[in-house]
């Protein structure tokens, strides 16, 4: 097996208290890893380190055999829902084309092969019909699939999603994860979520983060593990939507 992501005793602070402490994590090729943890547990910080947007204060981060910044080109990233203004005058198709940004020409915009790659990504996430729609008119679930298509258009080896279903309805959430399940055979996937119960049905492994890596498991989560993660007893409720 090939490790896609290796974190060796990674710590990070923004200058104040430690946000991440001594995190060791290896993600193998083909894994579908769920990264869970309460708010403020350092999940987003960890993602930013993997994307090379932040440097660890100590320790080492390796992605796809190089530094995160070197690996960027092969990482598909789906940001949190509210990363940009939703009234921005841009169509879904234009957003997905931005996945091909590295390749854009000076005059004349995107090449035809890039348009073809974007088309496939739009088809794969079932949003081809919406390509002319302004993003402001899309529902939460549709927008999330457009952002997934944009990430797929980068032809990633590693797909990273930050709370992809935080503000969409359960039905749309299931659609997104069914899509990810299909993509699993082609790429390594890392998804950040706070909804342990839901994602545990899909992922191959769960890593629980609360400043440091509390646990990781391939088996079902137990009540004790959740208690360990959140630091207090939590009632586990299984969400079933159908």
């Amino acid at each position: 097996m090939n490790p896609i992501v290796i974190l060796k005793s990674v710590s990070f602070s923004y200058g104040g208290p430690t946000v991440l402490e001594d995190v060791d994590l290896a993600v193998e090729e083909g894994e579908f890893l769920g990264l869970v943890g309460p708010n403020g547990s350092g999940k987003s910080t960890l993602l930013k380190i993997l994307l090379g947007l932040l440097e660890p204060s100590s320790g080492q981060a390796q992605v796809l055999g190089g530094t995160p910044a070197q690996a960027r080109g092969s990482i598909g990233y789906v940001p949190q829902f509210a990363a940009f203004p939703h009234d921005f005058p841009i169509s879904a198709g234009e957003v997905v084309l931005q996945g091909r940004l590295g390749n854009v020409r000076l005059f004349g915009g995107y090449r035809s092969e890039d348009r073809e790659i974007a088309r496939q990504a739009l088809m794969e996430t079932y949003v081809w019909d919406l390509k002319e729609q302004p993003i402001g008119s899309l529902s939460g679930g549709q927008l999330q699939r457009v952002l997934l298509a944009r990430a797929l258009a980068t032809q990633p080896k590693l797909l990273i999603l930050d709370e992809p279903t935080a503000s969409i309805d359960p039905r749309a959430e299931e659609d997104i994860f069914d899509l990810l399940k299909k993509l699993k055979s082609r790429m390594t996937i890392l998804v950040v979520s706070h909804d342990i119960g839901f994602i545990s049905q899909y992922v191959t492994r769960i890593a629980c983060l609360n400043r440091t890596l509390v646990c990781h498991t391939t088996s079902a989560l137990t009540g004790e593990m959740i208690q360990q993660l959140y630091g207090s007893p939590v009632r586990m409720i299984r969400h079933t939507t159908r």
């Binding site: 940004l101 854009v104 005059f107 915009g109």
Partner: peptide, 23 residues
């Protein structure tokens, strides 16, 4: 603007993503 239309669009729309794509 004619030359850099797509780049400007990307920077205005989602700066972080544009940065990740190496812009």
């Amino acid at each position: 603007v004619l030359v850099f239309y797509q780049q400007f669009l990307a920077v205005c729309f989602d700066e972080e993503f544009a940065r990740l794509r190496g812009l």
